[in-house]
Design a protein around this nucleic acid. Structure first.
Lengths: 280, 280
DNA sequence: GAGTGGTCTAGACCACTGT
DNA sequence: CAGTGGTCTAGACCACTCC
């Protein structure tokens, strides 16, 4: 037999998906639901926690529990990087008009807000290995969050690391008043003579820490996507390492891998291999 | 003030990371820990659940709570797809020797086990849209899981969909006894005259369902990565849609985006844009 | 059977939000 | 202030594993 909280969660889940509980609507209070289902408060809360982890409901302390309005999903694509690189070649005016986040979300620039905070720090073992520099090297750390002005919670919170002495070639890069960097990171790097050759994205998933859940406006239990973005320039040097935490229920990463087409000769080899299999 | 369970979790987390609690070691029973920390059992369990969600400990019903042995992390790279395509051109013997999962994990083929199950099904609205076919079209559904024989839990569980009438061109593809498809999916597709042009990976994260948590051997709360892999052939037709669920604490996806290098002329434009900024 | 984690209860008190 | 969700308790009983 399934547990009580599983059955209650399944029942409420069905009621939300069928529309009998509507998005944005306030649900009955926990104590009321407890009486409805005839269980203890702890059991009732456990069922609700499960739905909150799935992103179906949202609890607001002091206000109530609400059926969640499906949130805008952000699709972050690979093409974004080439687009950023191309944009470096645009005029300043053109660059100011649009930003990468806007491209992903389809929002207007006016609807987007950035917050940034700059710090100096030193490379720990783990970061030093990625940069291929000695541990303890001075770094420029830039903490930022991107949000829509229509929603309180940011899409993601990020930390970008640059080697301090490299970034210092353009003192403007050290100044947090220049946020958001007009034209994106790749343009900023171009001001210090850096052209990117490739970007490596490493993606993992995990539950959020309490601070991350608070910052992203998600309930504990909702997963986050963790993206480490490593930018490598044309001299094969790691120039930026960025860690971004994205709300799992609002983000979709899309990566396209283009495959090398076969030559006529290769196509024949593939066909021959098929015949070989048929004999076996 | 932080909550009791947060402080207890933080304390145990520190003791695990510092090594005072060693990997594989059995921790004191919940009732014993409850007395140690002087809290109720519910609070103690809540702290432990937090650590289980982080993948630091593992609860085994009837046995105890164990410090988790850090698991082998699987790195799934973009290069894998080109490698699979190249492998179609290899001899059957070469292909049999190695598989894609092996490539990612570094394990020997003998250590890997596959399980597969074939079914016919029809396309629902959502899948039909991806395939760009009418809903209700007959599909070949292939459920599989990959695991190391050294670990009980599989790396991932997946579902691959092919248009039935397309796959039926080679009756061997309909036979589950041919698992694992020697040479990988791309080779199988080549037997029905399909050459892939590109693969789109869509990645999201969410908490696992109860069944997924069980199947992947992770505690509830550990996040899963959900990968939808869409294979498109040289005629721009969607030939395969695969959904793979991967344990978030054991999987890392790595995607490399190669950027188009600037021409000499473009490099000058980039430099000119920098001067423009300085004037502003 | 002894010991473990899993579920569940009834009730207390605290913290936050609105009016 | 009333009403909400958040934390915490002491204790009962069940399900699983191993001896």
């Amino acid at each position: 037999m399934a547990t009580k909280y599983d059955r209650i969660a399944a029942d409420l889940r069905q009621r939300i998906k069928s529309g009998s509980l509507k998005p944005g609507e306030r649900m009955p209070a926990e104590t009321s639901l407890r009486d409805t289902y005839g269980v203890s408060l702890v059991t009732m809360r456990r069922a609700l926690d499960q739905l909150a982890a799935e992103g179906l409901i949202e609890k607001r302390h002091g206000q109530g529990t609400f059926v969640r309005i499906p949130r805008q999903r952000i699709r972050r694509t690979t093409e974004r990087y080439q687009w950023e690189k191309d944009r470096v070649l645009c005029s300043e005016e053109d660059r100011r008009r649009t930003g990468a986040t806007e491209r992903d979300t389809g929002l207007e620039l006016a609807d987007l807000q950035f917050e940034a905070e700059y710090r100096e720090c030193v490379a720990d073992e783990e970061v030093a290995e990625v940069f291929k520099i000695p541990a303890g090297t001075k770094l420029l750390e830039r903490i930022y969050r991107t949000r829509s002005s229509k929603e309180v919670a940011p899409f993601g919170i990020g930390r970008s690391l640059l080697v301090y002495d490299v970034a210092a070639k353009n003192p403007e890069l050290l100044d947090s008043n220049n946020e958001p960097w007009p034209g994106g990171t790749q343009h900023q790097l171009s001001t210090i003579g850096v052209e990117l050759d490739r970007i490596v994205d490493e993606v993992t998933a995990r539950p959020p820490s309490a601070e991350e859940a608070l910052a992203l406006g998600i309930d504990a239990g909702v997963a986050v996507l963790v993206l480490r973005k490593i930018s490598i320039d044309t001299t094969d040097r790691v120039v930026e390492v960025a860690d971004v935490v994205l709300a799992g229920d609002r983000t979709e990463m899309a990566y396209t891998t283009k495959l090398r087409p076969w030559s006529e000769a290769e196509r024949k080899i593939a066909a021959a291999n098929v015949k070989q299999d048929d004999r076996a």
